[in-house]
Lab assay of single mutants.
Amino acid sequence: NARWTTEEQLLAVQAIRKYGRDFQAISDVIGNKSVVQVKNFFVNYRRRFNIDEVLQEWEAEHGK
Rank of each mutant, 00 (worst) to 15 (best):
E8G: 04
S27R: 06
V43M: 07
V38K: 00
R47A: 14
R21K: 15
L10D: 12
F42M: 12
E7Y: 08
S34G: 06
R17P: 07
I51G: 05
V36D: 15
D22F: 02
R46M: 01
N44C: 10
S34P: 00
W58A: 07
F49E: 07
Q24N: 05
N40S: 13
V38Q: 09
V13A: 05
Q37M: 05
A2E: 15
A15R: 02
R48I: 15
L10T: 07
R3A: 10
H62S: 11
S34Q: 03
F41D: 03
L11E: 08
L10H: 04
I51Y: 09
A25W: 02
S34H: 06
Q24R: 09
E7L: 10
R46N: 08
A12D: 00
R21G: 08
W4V: 00
N44V: 12
A12T: 14
E61L: 08
V36Y: 13
Y19G: 00
I16C: 05
N1V: 05
V13K: 03
W4H: 07
N44A: 13
A25V: 03
Q14E: 15
R3L: 09
Q9G: 14
F41A: 02
L11M: 11
Q9A: 11
A25K: 15
A12Q: 00
F49W: 15
T5R: 02
V36A: 15
T6Y: 12
N32C: 05
G20T: 00
R3T: 14
L55T: 04
A2T: 15
Q9H: 07
V38I: 07
E61W: 03
R46A: 14
Q24D: 10
A2K: 13
T6E: 10
G31K: 11
G20D: 05
F42S: 03
E61P: 01
D52C: 06
L11I: 11
N40T: 09
I16T: 07
E7Q: 13
R17Q: 04
Q37W: 02
R3K: 13
R17I: 02
R17K: 12
L55F: 08
V29C: 09
A60R: 10
S34T: 13
V38H: 01
K18P: 01
D52W: 03
H62M: 10
A2M: 14
S27Q: 04
V38D: 03
S27L: 02
F49I: 12
Q24V: 09
N40Y: 09
